[in-house]
């Protein structure tokens, strides 16, 4: 197995799916000659040509609208929106069409497209380049919303997203693009959408997170063990929507305590839905109110202050201790 960054692992998934299935096409701004501004699509235009890897004019709504048409025809477009902060320009195409063409045509058409976009803070980026607005998409019925947390699951989930018969919004935590490497097998490896994973076993507390926040969450779990002797169970959501609460509920029934961590703003964020599901299905097992450690309900500041905005290991530990003390 080769050690890969998330960028390389995503590139592998795209390359192999394109090799297997000529209906898979890639389109977006600078995805061809430049190989994408983060190089996720690097080399694809050389291997597959400019009819399968389309450098589009600069228009996010155009990219997504055209993808919907391609998908209705039977292709599997994987479009890249250069930064999630520019995806609002294509919001109406997703909300009004991608998410509901199956429903509107009563199953005559469906939209097997993937919208890939880097999201999130932590890389000292420009304004509009650091937001976490996954809740917008998770709120739209008809969409799937996936966020990987490492090279290996990014590859396996992107394969599933490409093969999925319905539209998938695939947010890539750009802070993790080159943050670390993992073994990624050359042979096919698929991870199903809609299956959160327990990545650390524990009996005292359940910590639920996803994307770039998995790293501080796991660090906090280690520190809680070392300093407090607390055994925290950590769950990586991987799919935000459709939210599969099964292992979350099972875990909380076991631990009785939970902390939910995300960098998106708190109010109406994914944490609100997760907490509601736990209240509905595990209320009588809870020993303490559930805590949320999230971005604040403000616009993420420019990069000199972004660290103050993003949930830190210390903030997570503080909330965990509060839940454990109750």
């Amino acid at each position: 197995m080769a050690k890969m960054t998330m960028v390389q692992a995503l590139n592998l998934a795209l390359r192999q799916e394109m090799e297997k299935d000529d209906s898979v096409v890639v389109l977006g701004e600078d995805v061809g000659v430049d190989g994408g501004v983060f190089r996720v699509t690097d080399g694809l235009i050389n291997q597959f040509g400019d009819q399968r890897v389309l450098d589009t004019p600069l228009a996010e709504s155009g990219i997504v609208g055209m993808s919907i048409g391609m998908a209705a025809y039977g292709l599997k477009p994987v479009c890249e929106i250069q930064f999630s902060g520019f995806a609002y320009q294509n919001f109406h195409q997703i909300e009004n069409h991608a998410a509901r063409l199956r429903w509107r045509s009563q199953d005559r058409y469906h939209v097997p497209m993937v919208l890939r976009a880097p999201y999130g803070g932590g890389v000292r980026a420009l304004e509009h380049h650091s937001e976490s607005r996954e809740a917008y998409w998770a709120h739209t019925p008809g969409l799937k919303m996936v966020i990987p947390s490492g090279p290996r699951n990014a590859r396996g989930l992107l394969v599933s997203a490409i093969r999925d018969p319905d539209p998938v919004i695939f947010y890539e935590p750009k802070a993790l693009y080159r943050a670390f490497r993992e073994d990624v097998p050359e042979e096919e490896e698929i991870m199903a959408i809609g299956e959160p994973r327990c990545v650390r076993q524990g009996s005292d507390l359940t910590m639920i997170s996803y994307g770039a926040m998995m790293r501080p969450t796991l660090e906090a779990a280690v520190e809680l063990k070392e300093k407090d002797g607390v055994e925290a169970e950590v769950i990586d959501l991987l799919t935000i929507s459709p939210l599969n609460e099964k292992i979350l509920v099972e875990s909380v029934k076991k631990t009785g305590r939970a902390v939910v961590i995300h960098e998106a703003p708190r109010s109406f964020g994914p944490g609100a839905e997760i907490v509601s599901r736990l209240m509905e299905k595990a209320f009588y097992y809870l020993e303490a109110p559930i805590e949320r450690v999230t971005g604040y309900d403000i616009i993420i500041p420019l990069f000199s202050r972004e660290k103050a905005y993003l949930p830190s290991v210390q903030r997570i530990i503080r909330s965990a201790r509060k839940v454990l003390a109750a």
Partner: peptide, 9 residues
């Protein structure tokens, strides 16, 4: 426009 020349725009 980054890597896209006017002729492709």
């Amino acid at each position: 426009a980054i890597s896209i020349p006017l002729a492709k725009q």
